[in-house]
Amino acid sequence: MDPFVVLVLCLSCLLLLSIWRQSSGRGKLPPGPTPLPVIGNILQIDIKDVSKSLTNLSKIYGPVFTLYFGLERMVVLHGYEVVKEALIDLGEEFSGRGHFPLAERANRGFGIVFSNGKRWKEIRRFSLMTLRNFGMGKRSIEDRVQEEARCLVEELRKTKASPCDPTFILGCAPCNVICSIIFQKRFDYKDQQFLNLMEKLNENIRIVSTPWIQICNNFPTIIDYFPGTHNKLLKNLAFMESDILEKVKEHQESMDINNPRDFIDCFLIKMEKEKQNQQSEFTIENLVITAADLLGAGTETTSTTLRYALLLLLKHPEVTAKVQEEIERVIGRNRSPCMQDRGHMPYTDAVVHEVQRYIDLIPTSLPHAVTCDVKFRNYLIPKGTTILTSLTSVLHDNKEFPNPEMFDPRHFLDEGGNFKKSNYFMPFSAGKRICVGEGLARMELFLFLTFILQNFNLKSLIDPKDLDTTPVVNGFASVPPFYQLCFIPV
């Protein structure tokens, strides 16, 4: 058959498939802009700032609406009420993970971030239990974070109060905490193996944040037939998995079943207990991918939040002064901060919360999916439909947070200066898919920041009023603009 005829037939089939998918069930789905064949609503979305586009569309179609990214149908949730109703009140029905062709290629359905069903539930339950087990290797997770915080302070001392970009050092600290939990080992910041790991993690975040990856996920045929950065992403992930597998083999040879040292040991012990169960989800494949998931999810998000926190503290020296006064009063100079201190430091706690609220790190979270046909607000959402959640619409709700575009710790303080919780605080998402490392991340943010401010004054290279804190939105995360500062020993 003539190649031209084959091409026309293929394009015609794709067009018909697109029209059929977009028209099927439209009477039951939430409203939304009319999609174009094949490309859907992509032309109506700013790929570099999806969150802003969703906010604009919500003003037209309401808090629940339908979009098509290519052939992929998505239902968008915008605003606290619908997000709570879906992710919390109907948590089980909305607990699936959205379709990610690239991740599915890399992870093969294993791990904790992109798995679904029984596998996801069992691996998540085990990971939560293990991360909360403060007795691994007779050292609590808090001990590990405190140790890394001391190392971080010593690295900052080496800058000798000269101007520096904190990106690298602030990236090393949370990565080392995860390494300590998974591998029972922290690395020197100049260790070549550690630097290679950091390089792969950072490069992957840069790649994932590009519009090209959005295109690959919406048109998965590209993955096999086109060159691009997605190939580098898959190569980096394969490198990390190979490295983790080597460490798993080392653990198998040296493990003491009665004295687990780290996450890998705990997983291997669980595998041993379930070795007679042919349906067990505790396999080497799941261990390797879960460890890679924890490394990827637990490094860049925390380091970016820390980097943004220091920029905001530079911009608002009056806030920094209040935090340091609270540190001096509650902790002093002669001991290290600990998590028990947080309950006695409402202002510092409010500042950490406000940093996370203000920066809105992951504006749309990772997409969910419905696990069955769901009736939601008089609409029928078919099983498997991807759910896109606007966390921006919750964290920047102007009824809950007056002047949401302003950095103001009073958003989390009552009139008496006591810490005030808010149900709208969802930087880790909400419901059954809430970030498994939430507790660890909150511990790291509090301890790293208090250790830094206990030991250093922060000095800006320019007038604080002239510092730009506008986030650089890159399609996946909101990151701070480049800046330098000086760490002046107190």
Rank of each mutant, 00 (worst) to 15 (best):
I327T: 04
T320K: 09
N418E: 12
T304K: 15
G79T: 05
N133G: 14
F134Q: 15
I244A: 03
K138E: 14
F419N: 00
E154I: 08
V76A: 05
E438Q: 08
K232W: 06
M129G: 13
R206C: 08
N378V: 02
E328D: 15
S18K: 15
G343H: 15
L152G: 01
T450H: 03
R150M: 12
L413E: 02
L54H: 03
I452S: 03
T470G: 10
K383Q: 10
D243S: 15
D256E: 10
I434V: 14
K375C: 06
N176C: 01
A161S: 13
A350E: 00
G437D: 03
L245M: 14
R119C: 07
L314E: 03
L395F: 02
D373A: 06
I327C: 06
K121L: 10
N259H: 10
I359G: 07
T304Y: 15
L7M: 13
P33S: 01
F376N: 00
E81I: 04
S115R: 04
L366I: 15
M426L: 14
P464I: 12
M426E: 01
R307A: 09
H99C: 12
S390C: 06
T301H: 05
R186G: 03
H368D: 02
P367C: 06
N196K: 15
G98E: 04
P63T: 06
M406G: 11
G416P: 06
R26H: 13
V83W: 03
G98H: 07
F4H: 01
N258Y: 13
R307S: 11
L306V: 08
G91I: 00
Y483N: 03
V208R: 14
E328G: 14
R442L: 08
R144K: 07
K118S: 13
L197T: 05
I284V: 14
L43H: 15
K158Y: 09
L458G: 02
K275G: 10
E241Q: 15
K273F: 08
A238S: 14
I362G: 02
T210L: 09
L233V: 11
E326K: 01
I112N: 04
T348F: 04
D191T: 06
R150V: 11
V288K: 07
I169R: 05
D397M: 01
